[in-house]
Structures are given as structure tokens and as C-alpha cells.
Design a protein around this nucleic acid. Structure first.
Length: 562
RNA sequence: CGGGGCGUAGCGUAGUCCGGUUAGCGCGCCUGCUUUGGGAGCAGGAGGUCGCAGGUUCGAAUCCUGCCGCCCCGACCA
């Protein structure tokens, strides 16, 4: 492709609205342009890369027996009402104003609709159906460029099986296919076991990429690949001491001491000798949660453990319930349910609030003084804590979800009537699985992992072009002729070549554009070298430059672009 | 939906607090000449509903009211 005739609007300056590297670089390289919040147009260069990603996905899906569909984005609302998901999705679902249609945010319903009455016998199963289609979700806050959009491209597949064992196989096939896809795309990713949330169903795994732009926080162990969302992650930590002798309870005057840090400072003690109190309102009743030192209450874990409605108490409520303000609350004299984090189990000689402002108590023995206490895992793991599976250390960081595989079960087949007859002629709902990949996220994550201060660094697999041919001065007849000749020759040899044949762009301008666009190999045609029958070849990733004879070029390219 | 920031030419911005000529600058764009190994030089030129609507005023980018849009943090989220 000749740059002089192409629409590749690169930007020298950083657009004000872009913050994360992938967003900035996708705008600067002219891959995408925003139309509205969370709505992007893909320009030719960006679309070329997106196509390479979907081609890889398609190949790997076909390899496990997937059959590609093309489904409508516009869906009758009726079908969505059948599964209760008009309500389920709520404001996330886009509604069409002048018809009873919705814009599909995913396609379980439509796939099940097609399966109904056609997958009639166990002999028709299993099936793997997939599509690569635009989804619509009215995200309250689109962000990070293409990573969270209101309209986005997703590969979604759905499996229909007769038995749970067969579902396991379909799930396993997807698991393997996803690993191949992300490996081929050159991404560093990891896999997290997750709860399946609003999708309904049993087991699920998320394929994640570490990134500050991520929306999930995960704990990961480098040595054994343990990975879990912090909402469920556990770690190996030391529990608090239980001394041989329990002291008696005693009151301490602690003026203006509110936080655990202040208490530790005031009493010259370690935070593990303290029990922090947090008051929640659970189904209308007060609930005291005790944590060791500065450990934070993980509200997701709390919710899972006790169920129902939970919220932190308001300041006035705390005063009414305990007679004290936050910072002076404690378990002694608290007349409602008390639960504590496992770390505090059976601790004694602890310090805690006295339910009286400016007073704390010492000598607290949870076993003796709070007999009705219940222990649960309630804390969030932190970086540096021990991996629960091996002797490694956990790292806690933000991550982007690239793909998600679910064992759905029979929710949709039952709601939409996808039943088959088994060998005995008995009717059963088909057992479904659902598997998604965010295609633009693959692109954005690749860039997040492969850039430098000059621009993007493409590997050959996803690169829009493998060779960036730079003719330094197109007004020189020698250069113009030779570079055009090379362009034809390399194109015929099967290389995808981006030819910077712009007549008025200066050398430096072309170099910087080439580094920004980031094709794996640059071939630089300059007058000096050319007069000696030589060209320069540059490896974008390493920055290595070689001046080589023209007749060595093909060999060198083979070496660099294998 | 809560908090914060922003909206001036294609992009990046100054001016806004404290109202007063023709709204300034850099990049980009157009024309001509020169230049071509790391974002060229000179000369000339085009391009603006100052987000929108209303108000105050002799006079509004600037002050007031309402609305819209965009970014960030939080809440929410396959």
C-alpha cells in the first residue's frame, strides 16, 4: 500500500481525551476515531489489524468444530422477555424507540431460538455455534478507548450438549482454543476462576491481561499460576497470637485516638494486637465485623458469607447502636451479631474500641469475652502475601478481561424450549455453554504490552504490514525508481508492504511515522547507500540497523520475518 | 448516579478570575521557491456559530441561569 494515496491520518500530538497508551496510540496511528463516547470507527489500518485477530479466532474456532453464524443485532424484545433478561440487563440493554426491538448485548437468546425445535434428538448433539458480531451495551461509563465501548466486536460461541460430561468436553475444547488464540496473538495473559455473575450457571474462567487500565483486581502467583479475583482470592497469612495467659479486660483512656495506626502509636503496640470494628446493617439489623489491624473488610466476601442486604452503617446509626463513634467501637457490650475475620480466630490480649468515645479496652480474649462470635474469611488479600497453593508470593494488580468461558447449564434452553429426546425417548433441555472474546480488547491489550516512547511495536502476526518501505527522497530519480521496483518485487514475493512514497515528507518525518506505526521491519532507501547498491534494514523491536547489499535483502527479510 | 476537570480552527492550546479594538500562538492545511538520513526554511494564504439556548450589559469567549458533550475517580458491570 502506498502511503501517498492512503488514509492513515497519524497525529504528532497526543489527543487530550486519551489517557492510556493503547488509546493514545490507536488514535495517533490513525487506526480508530471516536464518534461518540464508547463508539469508535475503525479506519483502514485499524480494521486491517482487527481482521487479522478475527481471522485467528475463526481458524481456532473452526478447528474445534465451530460453525460460524451471522446473527442480527436487532432483536425482537419478546425473545428477551422470555428469559427475563430485559429486566436482567436493565438500563444496559438498548431499546429501539419506534419498534419493539432491542439491540443485542449478547446472543444466547437468538442461538437458543434457532436451536429450538431443530436440535431434536441426542443424535443432533453436540453442536458448537459461534459468530463474530457487534454487540450493543449502554455502558454507564465507557472508558479507556476501545476497551469498554457501547458498541464492540465480540466473538461469542454457544455449545449444546446432551450430558454434563459432554459440556465438560466442549468447555475444555474452548479452553484450549482460547489459549491458542491468545498465544498466537502474542499476548501475555493468565486464567482466573471466577463466579459467573449475571450470566447464570456454574463454572467459568476468565482470560485476563495485566493492565492498569483494567477493571478487575486480581491476585496472581507467578510460580504456580494461581489466579483469582480479589473478591474471592485467599492467601497464606499468619493469624494473630494466642498467649498462654489471658489478661483481664481493662479500660484505657485514649483521647483523640481514632485509627488503628493512631492506637498502635499511642500504646506502642503492633497492629496485629488490635481488633478493628466495622458496623454494617444486615437485613435491617446491626452487625459488627471485627478485622485484625488495618485489614480491610472485603464487602463481596461479606455479602457471600451472610447473604441478604448489607451496607455500612451511617455515623448517626453507629452512635445509636453502640453509643460511640467510628474509631471507638468494639465487641464488648455490642448487643447484636458479631462476626470476625479468620485471622482473629481465638485471639487474646487484644485491644479494641470500648464503645465509649476516647476509650479503648485491653485484655480482650475473643474466646472468653465474645463466645457467640463467628469466624469467616472476610479480608482482601494484598501483594506480598503467601500463595494459598504453593510457596510463592501473591501479586495483586488490575487486569482486563479478554475472554470468558461459562458452563451455562439449562437456563436458556428451558426458558426458550430447547429440548431433545434421549435414547429412551425422554425429553431433556439441552445443556449449554457460552464463550466470549472481546476482539477490540485483544487489539488494545496487544498494544498495551508492545509499545515504546516512539510508538507501537508489531509482531508479524498482527502487524497491518510486515514491511515499512521508506523512500527518503522521492524527488531523487534513483531512489524513486529503485524503491518502486522494490515495492513491486516484495509485494509479488507475498510480503505486505507499506510504502512511504510521499514526495514532500522529510526524512525525519518518515522515520518518526514509521516508528509510530511500528511495522516489524523497516527498509530505508537513501541516496548514499543506494549508490553503493545497499539499503538499510531496521528491526523495529530491537532498533537494530544493518546496511546490506540489495541482493542480500530477501535472505535478511526471511530471517527477520519468520 | 455521586465527586472532580474540561469544551476556543483538523490537532494541541493562550485569553475567562478582573467584560472593552480585528480572539492570539504552535502543529497541520493551501500556493510558490529552496530543502530531503531523524518531525525542514523563507514568503504569501485559507480556515472560528469561542459546545448550545436564554439572560445581564452601551458592549460577553469572559458575568448569571438552564441544557448538551467529553475525560478522570467512584458506584455499577457479560
Amino acid at each position: 500500500m502506498k502511503l501517498s494515496k492512503s488514509f492513515v491520518p497519524t497525529l504528532k500530538e497526543v489527543p487530550a481525551d486519551a489517557v492510556i497508551p493503547s488509546h493514545i496510540l490507536m488514535l495517533r496511528t490513525g487506526m480508530v476515531r471516536m464518534v461518540s463516547a464508547g463508539i469508535y470507527s475503525f479506519l483502514p489500518l485499524g480494521y486491517k489489524v482487527l481482521r487479522k485477530i478475527t481471522d485467528i479466532i475463526r481458524e481456532e474456532m473452526n478447528a474445534i468444530g465451530g460453525q460460524e453464524f451471522h446473527l442480527p443485532g436487532l432483536n425482537p424484545k419478546e425473545i428477551w422477555e422470555a428469559t427475563g433478561r430485559v429486566e436482567g440487563f436493565g438500563d444496559i440493554l438498548f431499546h429501539v424507540k419506534n419498534r419493539e426491538y432491542v439491540l443485542a448485548p449478547t446472543h444466547e437468546e437468538i442461538m437458543a431460538f434457532h436451536a429450538k425445535g431443530t436440535l431434536k434428538s441426542y443424535k443432533d448433539l453436540p453442536q458448537i455455534w459461534y459468530q463474530i458480531q457487534t454487540k450493543f451495551r449502554n455502558e454507564p461509563r465507557p472508558r479507556s478507548g476501545v476497551i469498554r465501548g457501547r458498541q464492540f466486536l465480540m466473538k461469542d460461541s454457544y455449545t449444546f450438549d446432551a450430558t454434563w460430561e459432554d459440556l465438560d468436553k466442549a468447555y475444555e475444547l474452548h479452553d484450549q482454543a482460547y489459549r491458542k488464540i491468545f498465544d498466537r496473538c502474542g499476548l501475555k495473559y493468565f486464567v482466573v476462576g471466577a463466579s459467573s455473575g449475571a450470566m447464570g450457571g456454574n463454572k467459568s474462567e476468565e482470560f485476563m491481561v495485566k493492565s492498569d487500565a483494567g477493571e478487575d483486581t486480581v491476585a496472581y502467583c507467578e510460580s504456580c499460576s494461581y489466579a483469582a479475583n480479589v473478591e474471592v482470592a485467599t492467601s497464606k497469612i499468619e493469624t494473630v497470637n494466642r498467649d498462654d495467659n489471658s489478661k483481664e479486660l481493662y479500660e484505657i483512656h485514649t483521647p483523640d485516638v481514632k485509627s488503628i495506626d493512631e492506637l498502635c502509636e499511642f500504646l506502642k503496640i503492633n497492629q496485629r494486637e488490635t481488633a478493628k470494628s466495622r458496623v454494617y446493617i444486615h437485613n435491617g439489623e446491626p452487625l459488627l465485623v471485627l478485622m485484625s489491624g488495618n485489614d480491610e473488610v472485603n464487602e463481596t466476601k461479606l455479602n457471600t458469607v451472610i447473604g441478604g442486604d448489607v451496607r455500612p452503617g451511617h455515623p448517626e446509626e453507629l452512635q445509636n447502636i453502640t453509643g460511640a463513634d467510628a474509631g471507638s467501637i468494639g465487641p464488648i457490650g455490642f448487643k447484636h451479631r458479631i462476626i470476625a475475620d479468620n485471622r482473629l480466630r481465638n485471639g487474646n490480649n487484644l485491644y479494641s474500641g470500648a464503645n465509649k468515645n476516647d476509650y479503648h479496652i485491653g485484655g480482650l480474649d475473643l474466646k472468653r469475652d465474645v463466645p457467640a462470635i463467628e469466624y469467616f474469611d472476610l479480608r482482601s488479600v494484598e501483594s506480598g502475601e503467601g500463595c494459598p497453593r504453593c510457596n510463592g508470593k501473591l501479586e495483586v494488580f488490575k487486569a482486563i478481561e479478554l475472554g470468558h468461558i461459562f458452563k451455562l447449564g439449562t437456563k436458556y434452553s428451558e426458558a426458550l424450549g430447547v429440548y431433545y429426546l434421549d435414547e429412551k425417548g425422554e425429553s431433556h433441555p439441552a445443556i449449554m455453554g457460552s464463550y466470549g472474546i472481546g476482539c477490540e480488547r485483544v487489539l488494545a491489550c496487544y498494544i498495551e504490552q508492545n509499545y515504546d516512547d516512539k510508538g507501537i511495536i508489531w509482531d508479524t502476526t498482527l502487524a497491518p504490514f510486515s514491511i515499512h518501505l521508506i523512500a527518503l527522497n522521492m524527488k531523487s530519480e534513483l531512489i524513486a525508481n529503485k524503491s518502486n521496483e522494490l515495492y513491486d518485487e516484495l509485494s509479488k514475493a507475498g510480503y505486505e508492504v507499506l510504502f512511504d512514497d510521499r514526495i514532500d515528507a522529510s526524512a525525519g518525518f518518515k522515520f518518526n511515522d514509521a516508528d509510530l506505526l511500528g511495522m516489524p521491519v523497516q527498509i530505508i532507501i537513501g541516496e548514499r547507500n543506494l549508490k553503493e547498491g545497499k539499503v538499510e534494514i531496521k528491526n523495529r523491536r530491537t532498533g537494530d540497523k544493518d546496511t546490506i547489499a540489495l541482493d542480500e535483502l530477501k535472505l535478511k527479510l526471511k530471517e527477520l520475518l519468520q
